[in-house]
Amino acid sequence: MSIWEYANPKKFMQTSGLLLPWVTGLAAIALVVGLIWGFFFTPADYRQGATVKIIFLHVPAALMAINGWLMMLVASLIWLIRRHHVSALSAKAAAPIGMTMTLIALVTGAIWGQPMWGTWWAWDPRLTSFMILFLFYLGYIALWHAIEDPDTAADLTSVLCMVGSVFAILSRYAVLFWNQGLHQGASLSMDKTQHISNVFWFPLIVCMGGFVLLFVALLLLRTRTEIRARRLQALLLRERMA
């Protein structure tokens, strides 16, 4: 069986209909367990105090803000190369989810920054690239709504997505190659000696899993809605022509 079979809307609707309840259930469990664990059962940090608990929202949201855009990039490239409508519609469906994740990362970061850095906002490389990523999300969504022909909209938004990918990658790696910013380095690392203490690490992993599953569940739901909207448009057009 080839992965391209799922480019068939009918096949996608069948498979996603089966998967959606399971992914939604798993997302709910992981989010509830992870956030309750992080909020109620982790200690205050010796420097950050209780504000360290914000990490359980901020880091997973930032992870999905960046990876959401990269998922849109892959879907856009598939659209441009193979012209599969489901991939263009899945990129369109992912944008509001990614935009919300970016907003959560920005808001929780600002709330954390006020007591820790003494400011809600700084023109730091990571913060600035994240703000630009948020604006790209807004522009991407606006472009989809501004163009009537769906194929032209898919083409132009795909190009915009490729341009915006620079900022998605930049927001991930900005702290590594620009040292003048306020934002600290990565909280997580494959090297065990570098990442945060296990008492925060384990609930954070559960929260990150929960955010990934939430993204997938919402993506499936919203892509199904987009496919239905496209079919509705086609039926209404056919009705008008008859």
Partner: peptide, 11 residues
């Protein structure tokens, strides 16, 4: 308390 609860509530 207000910082953490505010962040959780908004998110």
């Amino acid at each position: 308390a207000a910082t953490v609860l505010g962040a959780y509530a908004l998110a």
